[in-house]
Design a binder for these strands. Structure first.
Lengths: 232, 232
DNA sequence: CGCAGAGTTGATTATACTCAAATCCAGTGG
DNA sequence: CCACTGGATTTGAGTATAATCAACTCTGCG
């Protein structure tokens, strides 16, 4: 609710450039949302802010290395992390005039900023980045929607299983990987508490579905099928 | 997911629907939408399906009257309704090649289908519809994100309060309105059970925040401020 | 009327939360 | 090299919120 009220009444973010069909079909009018390689890399320390909710969305970003989280806060501090962005991911792309999330570094990270501009210009100047931007937006939507299902209707076990499989797919080629974020972040992403996340992971480990090690950041998925079954 | 209709329930809201939030930024010549029926109006019976998850996204739709819900199902039947679409709202617009949701009518409804095509073509042929489409997508994203916060971090009371305020803003001019959907739908939208929805509404009524009547579909918000406070 | 679907209410339970303490670990400095 | 520290994580005990199971009421409709 907060967000609607925040914007309501003032201006409607002008035309945003979202294609209805693939990268070829692109918007159009005025200052839309995308891109131009500004290309200075920026190094972020752990926890360093990239932008805050409500900031003018002048740039969007691509993760070079490390991990960035985007999130919203409730006035009493409750946090919902909508996504973790890993190397290669684009984040901070808005259809409106301001950022609807805050973003900061989960760990030491490196990002590149792009000045936002009309998508067609971007697509023309740098077709490859244009494609990346498009598919990034599509994935973002898709993920947001799947995540609603997870948050609204899945159990703690299912949430954690989903999360592990997702991270595995994204960060590892095999079944072993390191989680870049801590329990608090996982909890705020899955709509759980850190204790529940921890207990669930421990339980998975006891049951032989996973192995944990090294400050519990390192994970091995031993029984992906069982996890997938849990994933509902 | 949908544009918010500031208009009361049933009549075709024309441009006002979309313009509500940013009339200034939205140039509209009067009902371009109706003037250009790119599609055929379709009348839906209660519960009638518009499309299912995975269907080719050949069309997108605009609600003329009534209410449509879009949702995802888990294999065991758990459902997450991502949004309710009221008169004037656009739904079923995808960035990919297929629908990521199912959509069906909550009550008797009337919709118009539009053939999906390149955005630039649409924007050229029918600028107003193009604007509506754009702003629909932006709101869709915005709502999805806010809804994640609700699902992941809000209590039952906060969820229901959010929902009531949101519906009120969308379907009524004053503080009185009828809910087009039943408890099951509300529950599946908010990530609750029908019993919890019912109890929470009853509790609000007992505390004088709202009044319920007529098979509990009719709602009067008596104390919006209290609801807003609950809304976190 | 009487029926069926929707909604409410009640009793009980379970899942996940809260509060609290113990343990683990990386980094630091003696 | 190792004890110390503080943050992160795990574990434990008790609890609360919302779920579940079940009965009951209401409403609209044939």
């Amino acid at each position: 609710m907060q967000a609607y009220t925040a914007i309501s009444g003032s201006r409607l973010p002008t035309a945003a450039a979202i294609a209805m069909k693939g990268a070829a079909a692109m918007p159009h009018r005025s200052d839309a949302m995308t891109a131009k390689p500004v290309g200075v890399a920026r190094v972020l320390g752990k926890g360093e802010e990239v932008f805050a909710e409500g900031d003018a969305a002048e740039f969007f970003y691509k993760v070079v290395s490390g991990t960035v989280r985007t999130y919203k806060l409730l006035n009493d501090g409750r946090r919902q992390i909508d996504a973790f962005h890993l190397a290669g991911d684009i984040f901070g792309l808005e259809t409106g005039e301001e950022h609807r999330f805050s973003a900061d570094a989960v760990d030491a990270a490196k990002i590149v900023a792009f000045r936002r501009r009309r998508f067609e210009t971007l697509a023309h100047d740098d077709p490859e980045l244009g494609d990346q931007v498009m598919s990034s937006m599509m994935r973002s939507l898709e993920r947001a929607h799947d995540h609603m299902m997870l948050l609204g209707r899945k159990t703690a076990q299912e949430k954690v299983a989903s999360f592990l499989l997702d991270m595995s797919r994204r960060v590892s080629k095999g079944d072993r990987f390191d989680l870049p974020m801590q329990r608090t972040d996982i909890a705020d992403h899955l709509g759980l508490t850190i204790e529940t996340v921890s207990r669930t992971l421990t339980q998975f480990a006891r049951e032989g579905l996973i192995k944990l090690a090294a400050a519990s950041r390192s994970v091995v998925l031993c029984d992906k099928d069982a996890l997938r079954r849990l994933n509902a």
